[in-house]
Design a protein around this nucleic acid. Sequence first.
DNA 1: CAGAAACGGGG
DNA 2: GTGTACGTTTCTG
Length: 663
Amino acid sequence: MERRNFVLFDIDYITINEEPVIRLFGKSKSCDSDNSNNSNNNSNNSNSNNNNNNNNNNNNNFYERNLVAIDDSFEPYIYVISQNIDQARNEILGIGSYKIKDFEILRKKIFQVETEVLKVIFIHPRHVSGLRDEIRSLDSVDGIREHDIPFYRRYLINNNIFPMSLLEINGEVLNSFETINSDAEIFKLNEPPKSLNKNISDFRILCFDLEVYNPHGMPNSEKDEIIMIGVSSNTGINKVISTKGKDLDFAETVGSEEEMINRFISIVKEENVDIIVGYNSDNFDFPYLKDRAKIYNIKLDLGMDGSHLNFIKRGYGNAGSFKGLIHIDLYLLMRRYISLDRYTLERVYLELFGEEKIDVAGDKIWQFWDSDGEDLVKLFDYSLDDVVSTLKIAELTLPLSLELTKIVGQPFFDISRMATGQQAEWYLVRKAFEDDEIVPNKPVPSSSSRRNKEQNVGGYVKEPEKGLHENLVQFDFRSLYPSIIISKNISPDVLLKKNAYTGEYVENIVSKNLEQYNNDEYFNISPEKCHRFAKEPVGFIPSVIGNVLNERLKLKKAMKETENKQEKKSLDVQQQALKRLANTMYGIYGFLRFRWYSNECAESITAWGREFIQNTMKKAENYGFKAIYADTDGFYAEYNENLIKNISNEDKNVEDKEPEKDK
DNA sequence: CAGAAACGGGG
DNA sequence: GTGTACGTTTCTG
């Protein structure tokens, strides 16, 4: 048996002999060299030099050796809810015994109510989608749960492991394995991976960008050649590969487009890249590169198992993907990272760095290329600048996404393409597993119910007062929503709710013990709609948010205590990630396709929010702030000394309790 | 006017 | 991949 320390980059499964086999893609460092120093971060950063990676240099923090770990022990399953579990088991066997491996009876919680459920273990994940509808419609089956959680996600959650963090794996080295055609070490696991709590933050990031000949407007990949490939990496590469530019020191001149593509591929391989980054590369660079490479029969075989570029259908068009090589499209990330009117690379760069970048109008690129003079040089500068800017943006913004990956516990590739609400949802799915809670099904609203969805009243809005105002102060309540959820215990598992059709209470820990809740004082009752949330026990979502906020406080404390700048920075990013997660959490209730969707919860949060904002505005007036304009998350007020009234002690206390103010 | 289709980014 | 598209604007019948 051998052991490796292993950073997990990516995960999937393949099918061998009709059974699923999990593959973990990542990089390892031999354990001996890793044990030599337990305090990491003492070697200097990986800047420049040392580009040839084939020397065994263990003095940096990079994990060097490609490794694919194989685990054939994990089994797909769903939960079946039934009053008569024996009958359910027989009926299920009756419709698909050959797809079913085993049954187990487990005690789990549904909205905190202890329940005996039937765990149906399938031979193969595809049997889940194949059989679930039939199982659901069986007489003895009241419902099915957790039938739509992708196999690889289930593996990460159930084994409590996190991508982009360090794992310990134990197993045997194999000489070869089906579907793996590369020099990666192949490692067959003897037991599930173990999470090692060590922070890994050094990754090899390489950015790339294509320039394409385009005399007819947007280029057509059947006709228009790639003329430049810009490459910039945090390992010190900064160049433009092209058939022109012999006089430029940052240009690498090759003989043809075919050589250009081959050279690009070989650079990515030589640099042992962990994360490949582009800007709109899901929709432009990678599709274009693939089309052009096909013409020359070039394989874009950058996958850790030797596989090629593949496009995965995702919400938002296609996502370019390599097994074990993480592709991040910064455009998608920026749309969530900052709020702007437009998200061109120029605009984003200006926002983040306050500098204009070199610009060449898109429709002029072919003319600059043909000019063969000063304009050609300008085009080279532009190409380099594009990719250098992309790297700068990546280095600034990826740390936060990496932290979210390590908190949410899904692949970095996925996290970078997920809406924040989805990130929060997968985080909650993991927390539910830890709590033995069964995850609610996704609501599947028909198109009509979607239309009929009552519009949530939303936050309080005060129309702005016309005129030019000076001395404006902004009160920001965004971070207030998590505290409202916690203080009012807003959660579907402690909400007293009647089913609209049957008139019965929806089953949860409160309705199950209704005799204990025989008085209003046991509830927080929301303003306006009067939704009732039991004060005890703590609801699932308030408890998760509470833990997130506590973790965040601990990090902020640790930040104050440390003198180490690098550590401070790392803690700060972790702290920010938790803040984002907490602030996203309230939105979950309002989105129809989310598993914890609850219109009552969403309404109650905003109702209490409105109440709070109006109270605060009143109090603020006593301090000389005249509210000018208010919106859901806060208000703007004009400061006018003459308005200050006598401040009572009571008001002072209120002011003390105010949430974080920005500006 | 409602519902469908296109758009964003990229060159 | 045991998940199928986000919110907004413009076009079309």
